[in-house]
């Protein structure tokens, strides 16, 4: 038999611990969750350097260019290999049969169509995509990547294909509904905690973890999480705007021709309304394809 009287102090201590952890959840910890290798982390660290693509000019010859490799694949039918993170709805996510859908997937497919080649997706982790050194495992990233000065060192960017605002979100249990509710200032007064990808932050809040109540991500991702029933609210005005573009690894083979072709295709997709239609389809009627700064 367990002697309850003897165990009483232990039980009391356990009870107190549970109570303490419950009450501390009422205070918002000065911790913000962000995805690894994201601009949101850069922003929290005071290191966000948004940028625009370098000038893109048509090369005189396509010999030895990645474009030739892409066109020669699949017995000359051509195949473009695109990296995607299928954990980022509504840009890219998995279906029951294992295929991918989303805004980025549609944009990538349209680019391949207009290049006249087939398409194949690779699914590396996000930080492997932003780190460069793709070792020719995939040709391009159509992954809503923000153009930043440090990334431009290792990746070539096309013109942006759309623009998203970055937002702060708070869990509903924290009771925070506006920035002035916070007992600290952003970004200097907080610590960043990083999970593999943005969506993991929403997942952690959803599952009832209490180590953070705040999350910075793109407005579209936060809207997607709220629509999926995640208990959180979007707070305040956008923190900053992001220019999202197609990227190609600079450490790979020469790719000036491929970059030029894709940039031209994106320009055409802006002009003929394809991107606008896709944006409205995936972002609940919102047109995110016009530059908010112009």
């Amino acid at each position: 038999m367990v002697n309850l009287r003897r165990r009483a102090p232990l039980l009391l201590a356990a009870g107190a611990l549970v109570l303490a952890s419950c009450t501390s959840a009422a205070n918002v910890p000065a911790v913000v969750c962000v995805g690894e290798s994201t601009t949101y982390l850069d922003w929290l660290n005071g290191d966000f350097q948004p940028d625009s693509p370098a000038d893109i000019t048509e090369p005189s010859s396509t010999a030895g260019d990645l474009l030739e490799t892409v066109r020669a694949r699949d017995n000359g039918n051509g195949q473009l290999i695109v990296s995607t993170d299928p954990n980022y709805a509504p840009q890219s996510f998995l279906q029951e049969d294992g295929t991918f859908v989303g805004f980025d997937i549609d944009v990538a497919t349209e680019i391949a169509d207009r290049l006249g080649v087939g398409i194949k997706f690779e699914t590396p982790d996000w930080d492997a995509i932003t780190a460069g050194s793709w070792s020719e495992r995939w040709d391009i990233s159509v992954g809503s990547m923000t153009i930043t000065t440090p990334r431009k060192e290792i990746l070539s960017f096309t013109q942006p294909y759309y623009y998203t605002p970055a937002y702060l979100a708070a869990s509903t249990r924290s009771g925070v509904t506006k920035v002035s509710d916070l007992p600290f200032t952003l970004p200097t007064g907080v610590e960043a905690t990083t999970l593999t990808t943005d969506a993991n932050c929403a997942e952690a809040i959803e599952s009832g973890r209490t180590d953070f109540d705040l999350w910075i991500s793109s407005g579209t991702t936060i809207d997607g999480a709220i629509a999926a029933g995640s208990p959180m609210v979007k707070i305040g005005e956008p923190i900053f705007q992001e220019n999202l573009a197609v990227a190609i690894d600079k450490s790979g083979p020469p790719h000036a021709a491929l970059l030029f072709e894709i940039d031209k295709i994106i320009g055409e997709m802006h002009a003929d309304g394809t991107l606008k239609a896709l944006s409205e389809q995936w972002f609940e009627g919102a047109d995110l394809t016009t530059d908010p700064s112009s």
Binding site: N87, L94, T123, P124, A128, T197, A199, A202, E203, E206
Partner: peptide, 23 residues
């Protein structure tokens, strides 16, 4: 699963995160 092989755990964690149903 950490190097993008779409095996059992990769599928479970991607789908779990996406739909908030990790359990």
């Amino acid at each position: 699963s950490t190097i993008a092989v779409q095996e059992l755990l990769w599928r479970a964690s991607k789908i779990g995160t996406r739909h908030f149903r990790t359990l």
